[in-house]
Amino acid sequence: MTSLVLVGHSPELLRALRAMVAQSAPAVPVAIAGGTAVGNLGTSSPAIRDAMRAALAASGGDGAVVLLDLGSAVLALEMALEEMSAAERTRIRVSRGPLVEGAVRAAVEAAGGASLDRVLAVADAEREADKLPPDWLAGPAA
């Protein structure tokens, strides 16, 4: 099953997000890499690399989609990817989607047995998803 990797600055935030994901898709493996090696807010490329490897192993060869938060997450992720083998990297996709919505949406898709690229596509599509109703500018519950 396609698995997920959540990358961010806060381990608490990612643990909570993993719990949200598990509510909707309990069978989907979710690895997290949040905070520095010494437990502070921040990102750590060794931790990200290890999480990606764990997710790949749990996916049974189906691959893993990475979702990330802001700022240095992408820098650390880039370096973590460079430390992986070409064979490992072919089974990793990185989503441009928002972390929370993308993770929940991707997990539900993965739970349905979707391919790696399909899971990536739905996570990415959350970039365009409008979370406000179309008539929102008319005023909330006017």
Partner: peptide, 17 residues
């Protein structure tokens, strides 16, 4: 490697690299 793992944030990645 040490800086990358312990600093966190963009500066950890940038100085580490």
């Amino acid at each position: 490697r040490v800086l990358m793992g312990t600093v966190g944030g963009a500066s950890g990645a940038l100085y580490g690299r």
